[in-house]
Each structure stands twice: as structure tokens, then as C-alpha cells.
Design a protein around this nucleic acid. Sequence first.
DNA 1: AGTTATTGCACCATCGATTGTGCAAAAAAG
DNA 2: CTTTTTTGCACAATCGATGGTGCAATAACT
Lengths: 352, 352
Amino acid sequence: MTGIGKKKATIYDLSILSGASPSTVSAVLNGSWRKRRIKEATAQLIQKLANEHGYTTNLQARGLRSSRSGLVGLLLPVHDNRYFSSMAQSFEAQVRSRGQCPLVVSACRDPEEERQVVETLISYSIDELFIAGATDPDGVHKVCEKAGLKHVNIDLPGTLAPSIISDNYEGARMLTQAIVERALEDGPLSPDDLYLFGGRNDHASHERIRGFRDVKRASLGADPDVCIQPTGYSPAMTARAFEAFYEGHGKLPRAFFVNSSINLEGLMRFLAVHPHETFADIIVGCYDYDPFGSFLPFPVFMIRQDSEAMITKGFAILDADRRPPITHLVRPTIVPPRTALIGPLDALKDIE
Amino acid sequence: MTGIGKKKATIYDLSILSGASPSTVSAVLNGSWRKRRIKEATAQLIQKLANEHGYTTNLQARGLRSSRSGLVGLLLPVHDNRYFSSMAQSFEAQVRSRGQCPLVVSACRDPEEERQVVETLISYSIDELFIAGATDPDGVHKVCEKAGLKHVNIDLPGTLAPSIISDNYEGARMLTQAIVERALEDGPLSPDDLYLFGGRNDHASHERIRGFRDVKRASLGADPDVCIQPTGYSPAMTARAFEAFYEGHGKLPRAFFVNSSINLEGLMRFLAVHPHETFADIIVGCYDYDPFGSFLPFPVFMIRQDSEAMITKGFAILDADRRPPITHLVRPTIVPPRTALIGPLDALKDIE
DNA sequence: AGTTATTGCACCATCGATTGTGCAAAAAAG
DNA sequence: CTTTTTTGCACAATCGATGGTGCAATAACT
């Protein structure tokens, strides 16, 4: 606590105080002192002084010298969503446990912004980058490669870097199967009663739509194109699609698959302006898990993607010597309606 | 695109290429060249070369030299929650628009971790820090002060630094009023029918409890202590409190106030293991807004805190010359049940 | 033409830590 | 009591950018 308000102590200050040279101080404080054959007593003296003066390493200086920063980046489409925010939470925990510092940023699904944001991260000499849900993973890849930055794709695959994604096809099959079965409990289901909303022209959407259509065709016999409504990822556009369907049919489809919790927000917007009867008997599947979404006043089957496993796998890949641009699938799990899963929050100490 | 795989270009490389000195290159690239009376032609030449070689400033070097980093920190309790994740989203947008780089980290409501995390941020020479929902704002303040780091508290106030918080008392009054009125529509409400769950020993909880009790006493005549159940902020503890009440009464309170959406997750856990009749007629108020929470199968009044305004105010304070440790209140708004508000996501370009 | 102002830029120290190298002093070996 | 080895540390270059200072060359004045 010595030195309130004064400038931060540096190795030069400690050098003077201890009588040792700056390089000795540096070695002691970064742990390389045994290798440098510094006497134990010297080390202890310096460490005592460092504590007394609240020394902390200037990481910009270290980073400049070593051209590494201890920062690990995570590029997200958005923060404000339970899937990505829980990914951020897991990411942060794992980065910390590796003694590094997480740097989570979002780029709004805008390819140009994605590249720019990554350029900025590179300017800070980040050591590694997780690219989650990027609209243009390969564009980002090129930026990373030019800077020699190790990176992996999460959630949406690229062709040039290793990717770890949810097994969207299998997940979509499970989810479709679940809502079909549930709908059949209420009576026969015609192909026109089962829709899919949301998603756009990306790998995840394609796979999910493929899984949906395969199961639908197998179980209901037909699979008209009109039942696929890829509205993009915006709640507003999704709401519009529900609105359009409703205008045409006077109701919502009996059962439908929603491509993500962001699209599910679009459904909320629709519900907000329509009476309860409109959706009294709908059955919904949502490819994402949200603890409140699971308790809506109609059955909502959800898919929980294992973002923690994806991050773990991502680090394993980055740690490996060779990093071929292979896509790794992580199996998601299906969550029946009215289920409250425990999440990253439960790791918090809040015993009181 | 010249130089794939090669090291990043520096001002020294451009110095050689252009024939100008490194300092001239530096001045051109950081915009101070007019002030330094560099010829326009020289500047253009250097900028052309910089573009061709994909030059980007090494921000660690700049940061070291100028003892600033361009990083602005936001310390959160957790990411995985709509209130904080939307705060992160607003924060990021505002930081970016100021030409800086956001650094969002969470510290799990652990005072020791809060201080440590901030120490780390300081080691990166961050320029400013927003401390949101800190368990020990004053402890963090001391760490910041020692390092000469400008900072503000958001959401939970400290006594030593300026704070911007939600008007918890007024918000709680509005929310309590709303659920009382709604409950009265279904018949008379006894004081024993109105509970509060969640929160702990912090300023926000105190104010909310105070608002709740004041309105309750005024409108129902009494306000027994047993109706206040501060369970901390964990979903698990909150669920236990609902469970305990249920064991004792065979039902949930007719109406109750939940201190935050994290506590509301505790309610979900309870609901998951109890039949629908258990909560057929409950009326809930939740001090936080969540778009799915608003559509649960019973009326949920919510409070939307204006995190965007808080961040804006935070920057205004940090930009001011004097920063007295005053607490600024930001009025939240009440959100009736079944309401889908638009959020930061709507700023995304997703027209497709 | 001679003097003063202005323009245009180069030089160099600096930020704080890292790391290869060299060299005394102390210890071990002969 | 030498010679060799080991121990313990200091020196100095380096990472890339910044900004104060100084000095030519050119331009603008008497």
C-alpha cells in the first residue's frame, strides 16, 4: 500500500531499491529466476519489495517485447443472447484458468465489421482467437493468417481454419422428431401444419433445415417448400414472417421449428400483439436453449448447444501442433419443455 | 495484400520504403502530421505504402509509450443474463463509437476476484473502467485510485467514486404497485399473499425492499417481515426459498416480487418440478426485463433498467473534469406482462 | 544581397520488460 | 596453491511508437 497516487512501480524502481539490476528484478518477477541462477535470497528480497510497493508487471511492455499479450479473443455476433453470453461465460472461465485474459467482442454479424474488429484485436497482439458465429469465417481467417494469429471457428465453420460446431443436422432431427411426436399426441399432423422459421444462408441454417426436412418427410410423408421460412436472424423479420402467415391462415402453424432464440424473440413480438387464442395449441421447437423460453405458455422443446465443450475443444485444437482445417461436431442435447438447466451462474459463490 | 505470412510492417519498414524517418512515418500514420508540418505529398506517399503493406499500428507499443491503451473496461458480475449482456452490448457500441476498444470481463460477484481482475486490467493500462454490479465497489475503487485509473460505478453504488444506478426505490414502488393492482383484480389481497424473493445485502436490494415495503404497507396495511426472503442472487438458493414456502403452505404466494432475473431463474427451477396448478394464478413482478420472462404462463410485470442511459451517463461523468462521488439515479420503466421490447439486437443489419 | 521566418523533416531519448552474453567471485577439483 | 567449474549477476540490445528539439533548405522580407 505504499505509494498511493504515485506512479506504478517498475522494475527500475525495484532495481534501485534492491540494489540489483533491472534484468535481475525482471527475472525474479517473471519466474525465470531459477533458470537464470539468481540466489534465492536475492529473489526473496526483490519479491518482498515488489509486494510492498504493489508492483505489477506492465503487460504492454512485456507484450511489446515478447510480441505476445496474454490476451485471448472471442468474437461474437452479439452479446445479448443466452447462447452467446453463456459461451462468453465459459470462455472467460477457461481463459482465466490458463492464466490469460479474455477479450470478448461482438461484430453484429457484419462481415466488414468482423474483419475490422479482428484487425483491432491483432493490433493488441492477442495470442489466440475464437471466431464464433462469424458471417464470413474465411474472410476473418485471411486477416488472422496474415498476422500469424492462431484461431478456430466456433458455431459456424469455415473452410480454411479448424472449426468446432454443433451437430446441427442431428440436433435439428432430434428437435423436429420431438415436436412431431408431441404434435401427434393432439391428433394427426399434416405437412402444412409444420413450419420452420428463421435462419439464413449459413452452414448452421442449412444443416438445421436439412435435418428438419429429412425428419419431416420421413414422418409426415411430404415437405412443401412453403413451410421453410428463412427470415434471417433478426427478431423483427421473424415477427413479420409470423404475421404474414397469420394473415394468410388466421392462426399460426400447429407446430414449428424456430432456428434460434433470436428468432424466438420474433415470436414474442408476434404474441405481444395477438390474443391468447392465437397460440393456444402451438408446439414449438427452438434451436437454442433459454431458461425462460422453456416455460412459455405452450410446449417449447429446445436444443442446448454445449458451448463449454466447444470452447474446451477449441483450446485443445489451438494447443495442438498441427491444425488442419477440419470441422469437429459437438452433439447438442434436447431439452423438453419446462426445464430449468443449471448454467455457468451456478458456479458462483453466493452462499449467504 | 503484400506480405502474406511475413511479419507485420512497422514504421521502420515504411521508413525505409519511403525514405522518410520513422518519426515522420509515425506522425503521418497517427494523424499528427499536420501539426508536425509534414508535406502533404510525403504524407500521401507514406499512406499509400502503409495501405499496400497492410500496416496497422502496434497498439502495445503505442500504449507503452503513451501509457494509455485505448482499452475501456467493463467489469460485470456475470455475462449470462439479459440485463448484463445488454449492458455489454450498449457498452461495446459506445466504446467503439469513441474509437476505443471494449474489454468486458466478469468477476462472479466475488470481491477478491473483482480486485484481481481489475489489477489485471490495470496491467494492460486500460484508460477507463466501468464497474457494474460490484460486490465491493469501494475495494475496487482503491485499486483504481492507486493506479490513477478513472472509473465509475454502475448499478451498485460506492461511496468513493461517482455512481450511476437505477432508481431502485422508485422502480420497486412501480413494480409493487403494478402487481398489487393486478392481484386486486382477482379479489382482496392479504399482506400474507404478497412476498418478495431474492436480493442480498447490497444497496440495490435494500432500496428495492424499501420500495416494496412502503407500497405494501400503504396499500395493504401491513408488512410482515416473513414476507421478505432475501435469498442472495443464486437461482439455486431462490428455488430453495420457493420450495420452502411451498412446503409450508401447499402453494406459492398469490403475488410476489422477484429481485432480479437471476432470481427469476430460481422460480423456473421450482416450476420445473411442480404441476401447473401450483402456479395457476400467481402474479409476479421481476426487477429486470427479459423478453421471454415477459411471456411466462402467468402475469409477469418487469422492470427494464436503462443500461444504455447508464453507460452514456458514465461516459459523460468520465469526460468531466471533476468527478465527485455522487450517485446519479436513472429511472427505469415498468413493462407490463407479455411485452416484447426491442433491444440492441435491432440495430443489427440483417436485411435478407 | 543580407537577414529573418517559415517549412520540412531527421535525431534521439523514452516507455517497461525480456533475454543473449559476458565476466567477476566463489567453490570445487587437481 | 593453481586450474577448472559453477554461481550470481550486470550489461546492453531490443520490441514499435511517440514527441521534444534542432537544423538545414527554402521563402519572405528589408
